[in-house]
């Protein structure tokens, strides 16, 4: 298969329509509404669960999102669930926007490098995961390294617990994240990390079960970003497991879940990092021996 080098394209010309004579097996292009699309998909893919996401696909929606990107505010607020994150991931994952286009849009919108550093860094993560996938191929679905939790890999369940899948764990945060995942197909990165850490460390589930569940739903579901991030949480692709506590979740979610949680007075996520560490892991050396970035924040946040 020849691979050709191409000239770089500075201006993306609109692609002219090149209709092809219809064939009975072609899927329709003329759909009067999203309801019609929903019905069509129900008919053509009866096994695919759920409904449409409120998040629309397509270049127009992507450009609308891109026009709202504010790199400096992103940098300041990105760790908060209410922060000004871009929501570009589904469009980047499917090439609706290329990473190069988004990079250039960020450059055009900042005066100083400091304003765009965080966002450019996140685009770098996307590029990194893709390079890892090219290097590892299907092996991204296997443990990259041993767990550093003190627990053998065999002690992690291969099945996602039904209460997690159904959103009835009783924890308002985790059930809320599940609801958003299943209805919209998108989750804030911090919520992904909390949910993944809860599934892997609190429920002792193998990362792969959670990662596969995410891929059923995430509009940006990219096996490389997803599987390797889950492995990063689990500690199979990092030096130590990622975990968090209630204080951390409450702070970055503005307490929106804890206020209405029926488990608020017996929250399994509550406790100091030291206490949770001895509860969750079976290691002789503290997993947090590597200096954390700052007191009170997640122990590790990429």
């Amino acid at each position: 298969m020849p691979r050709q080098d191409r000239r770089s394209v500075d201006q993306l010309a609109p692609v002219p329509a090149a209709p092809s004579p219809p064939d009975p097996g072609d899927l329709p292009r003329q759909l009067p509404s999203r309801e019609a699309l929903n019905s069509l998909l129900q008919q053509e893919f009866p096994g695919a669960p759920g409904e449409l996401s409120p998040i629309r696909g397509g270049r127009k929606a992507a450009e609308m999102r891109l026009s709202k990107v504010d790199p400096a505010r992103y940098a300041r607020s990105r760790n908060h669930l209410d922060g000004l994150v871009t929501g570009l991931s589904p469009y980047i994952r499917h090439g609706v926007l290329s990473l190069a286009e988004v990079r250039d849009a960020v450059f055009r919108r900042i005066r100083h490098r400091d304003e765009g550093g965080k966002l450019i860094n996140e685009l770098g993560w996307r590029d990194f995961w893709q390079r890892m996938w090219l290097e590892l191929g299907d092996a991204i679905a296997e443990d990259q390294e041993e767990y550093k939790t003190g627990h053998p890999a065999s002690s992690y369940s291969n099945a996602l617990p039904q209460d997690v899948r159904d959103g009835c764990t009783g924890l308002a945060c985790m059930d809320g994240f599940r609801e958003q995942l299943v209805t919209t197909g998108w989750l804030h990165n911090h919520a992904r990390m909390w949910l993944a850490a809860y599934v892997v460390h609190w429920r002792r589930v193998h990362w792969r079960a959670g990662a596969d569940w995410f891929l059923e739903h995430l509009l940006d579901g990219d096996p490389a970003s997803n599987h390797l991030s889950w492995q990063w949480v689990a500690s199979c692709f990092s030096h130590k497991p990622y975990f968090f506590n209630r204080d951390n979740l409450e702070r970055y979610s503005n307490g929106r879940y804890c206020r209405s949680c029926s488990c608020a007075d017996r929250c399994p996520l509550e406790g100091s990092y030291d206490a949770l560490e001895s509860q969750l892991f079976a290691v002789s050396q503290p997993v947090r021996a590597v200096p954390a970035r700052s007191k009170g924040k997640s122990k590790r946040k990429r």
Binding site: L37, N38, L41, A48, E51, R56, G57, G185, E216, L219
Partner: peptide, 10 residues
């Protein structure tokens, strides 16, 4: 899920 298929379709 249908969400993902709908997104791709659009």
């Amino acid at each position: 899920s249908r969400k993902r298929l709908g997104f791709l379709y659009e």
